[in-house]
Design a binder for these strands. Structure first.
Lengths: 237, 237
DNA sequence: ATTATTTGTGAACAGTCGTTGACTTTATGT
DNA sequence: ACATAAAGTCAACGACTGTTCACAAATAAT
């Protein structure tokens, strides 16, 4: 049966504490090297499906055939990268959520945090941005599912605001996807900037913060579907 | 000097009216075939810089070397495609603008028109969407300049509304880019749908129309920078 | 200590790629 | 009618690609 063998490590005695499987260590090391190599190659003009398996192996300091010890093919490596990137993003969200809400300048703080995070993980976001439309169907749907989940989480966060009580789930989703749109657009513009162009980065910050404020104002004025129907029923009755 | 030769067509007599240069005709025909071949190849999984010159030539029913009679390299062909796509889009805008404004259901009509247009020019938009981030620097900036111009035109259109008088040019640009964001996102979701999935297309229509309405509501409530400063000055004085 | 398993190497394959140069064919300019 | 220039064909090159197989080295299991 093709199952993974159950390795009963550290058998005889429970001594030899720090024996961290020198085999696995080495494996994880070159695996990471391959992933990083792919990310690095995509920082320039290349997109994921225009870089070659051999290129990745070469860039990782390994012979092409060694690649197959870690990934079935390039697509599998790509999926791994998507997974890593989205997991990191979700973690950032979780941390940001647990922070106390300054309520007033909440938007500014959030935008600030997010921009900083994107700049700190430029390569991952570069990859996500490119594969959001460029890549194979598998990668594309993986990215989309990730952002969809992102939108949903944002929606449940927004639902915690007292003002949001009037709004239905669908309306909250609609607003969340609008906000995520702003974030995506900001990200793309940010990635097209030299990383140290502070003036432009600040402008980008203001722009997206303003846009979010505008969305906020709009949702305060929004006439929920339920109310509209109530009104209509009233007019008819 | 490597200049293009000035061809003095139809020299001797001004007769021979319909002599539409059988040479040029043929040339334009295969040129178009090459462009269409590239577009068609990109309908699937491939992105522009993952399709080969030979593939394009083959798909156009022509030998690889014939390619060079029309384009210096693939990048030049790509730039031509961007140009064509943006020109078509701008023309649509011009037509939409000349139409009378129903004022009330303006947003619904506009979204409807745009979605129809995207579906009618699926291949061009597929290309634009992919190259917006995937492609070479040259293509990318070409696409971005196009959308920037698009935003500006939309801003001047919005400025014609009576409500827009309170807003500065920068604020109008900010709002316009927000709207264009919605359109871009809608486009991308639309392209990821089978072209005949009417139910999903309708949902997409509603979603983006709602988002635009929300932006509209928001901009009505927007406190322009000028007013905010006035208020502040008042408080201080 | 001796097996077995795993990680990485090396050579080789059949294809595809972009680009070259010398050619045929065909319409144009005089 | 004849020379010219243009559009497309053909063969060939050196380079790079993904994948294969057999093999070396290192580690784990017994």
């Amino acid at each position: 049966m093709g199952m993974t063998r159950v390795t009963r490590r550290r058998s005889r005695h429970e001594e030899e504490e720090n024996e961290t499987g020198r085999r696995d260590m080495r494996k994880q090391r070159t695996r990471r090297a391959l992933l990083d190599a792919a990310l690095e190659l995509m920082q320039g003009e290349q997109s994921f499906n225009s870089i070659s398996l051999r290129e990745v192996a070469r860039n990782a300091g390994v012979v092409p055939t060694a690649f197959y010890r870690h990934f079935r093919d390039m697509d599998e490596l790509g999926l791994t990268l998507v997974e890593e990137a989205l997991r990191a993003l979700r973690q950032m969200m979780r941390e940001a959520r647990s922070a106390p809400l300054p309520a007033n300048s909440l938007i500014n703080r959030s935008v600030q945090t997010y921009i900083g995070y994107v700049q700190a993980n430029r390569d991952y976001f570069q990859f996500l941005a490119k594969e959001r439309f460029g890549g194979s169907r598998a990668l594309r749907t993986a990215v989309r599912q990730g952002t969809a989940l992102f939108i949903s989480e944002l929606a449940t966060d927004l639902a915690r605001f007292p003002t949001a009580n009037r709004l239905s789930t669908e309306e909250l989703q609609m607003i969340s996807s609008l906000i995520v749109n702003i974030m995506i657009s900001t990200t793309e513009q940010l990635l097209d900037l030299p990383p140290d162009n502070d003036a432009e980065v600040d402008w980008l910050h203001d722009q997206s913060a303003q846009q979010m404020r505008l969305v906020f104002l709009g949702s305060l004025q929004w006439k929920p579907k339920s109310e509209r129907e109530k009104k209509k029923a009233l007019a008819q009755g």
